[in-house]
Amino acid sequence: MKKAIRIGTIGAITALLAAMYVWFFVYNKPHQNFEMAKPEKVLSASQCFENFSKNNTPDDGKVLEIYGIPSSIETADSMVVVCFYFKKGMFGDEGIRCTLLPKFQKAASKLSTTDTVYIKGFCAGYNGTDVIFEKSSIINKDK
């Protein structure tokens, strides 16, 4: 009888631990921390745009680090977007648009359109107009 209770208790604890694991680490697993993620590729912004616009080697769905001289820093609602533009089209300037993580929005005000900047983020893809980077961070190369 004691043995049956012991087996039952162990079984119940195991099931509870398995359920907790699934709840916390599968169903409610956190979003990827793109600030800490290692980039799969480092390339210039112009090369990255060319890769997408000419459909050479699309890198959508990957964490990438790009560098270049930003064309503009745009703000819209609560977003700050670092833009690298290379051509004009139906939607005006077209190129790469990197939406910054809130943590880096203040630092964006210090960026200039004359100096090279390094940006790392999740490359969501090319919408036929722009290459979109989400959850981007500014990489300080002086460290």
Partner: peptide, 29 residues
Amino acid sequence: NTVNCAMDTQSGFFVVKILMRSFVFEKEL
């Protein structure tokens, strides 16, 4: 929050481009 949209006020032409991977859900799963 990164959807492209353009409209021409003369012709009424309205176009929207949505990158599917830019949709953000509360849960990663």
